[in-house]
Amino acid sequence: MRLGFLAPVLTFAVIAALMLYALFFLNPKEIPSELVSKPAPEFQLEPVPGYGPGLGTSDLKQGKVVLLNVFASWCVACLAEHPLLVKLKQQGVVDIYGLNYKDKPDAAAKWLTRHGTAYTRTGMDLKGRVGIDFGVYGVPETFIIDGEGRILDKIIGPITEHDLETRILPRVSGENG
């Protein structure tokens, strides 16, 4: 039996399988955060007018898991995830802090008035420098932060039900229980 002719066929099959996997199961736009398991960077920001007393690194160290949600009034995808955040806030599941990224103060305030706020505190990153310190490269992004202010995970793009169940809720309940 000569099966030598199968070698190129097998090579092709392996490459094709790898490419199909990359095509359907990997997302090239998701760059894993370099900051996971590191402390949140130092920052101190003014609040969105009328929405809390401002936001700094110390506010993230709550002794329990909290979320830091990067949002902007110009960001369409933020609007998509916002109802979910508001629901989490209303049900008291987790405290959410809002990092308002490269926005105009009055536009941000108007957006929060119109769509309801999910945030315990807000901070305005007018120049986007805090965003860069956090390795933000698009909005929305959501950081999951533990009780000592360390970053546990980052969700890129709008939070899905799947993200909520697999990445947020287990950490929130694990910390409380």
Partner: peptide
């Protein structure tokens, strides 16, 4: 930049 965004 690598500290913030990784080798990527």
């Amino acid at each position: 930049l690598v500290v913030r965004y990784g080798d990527w």
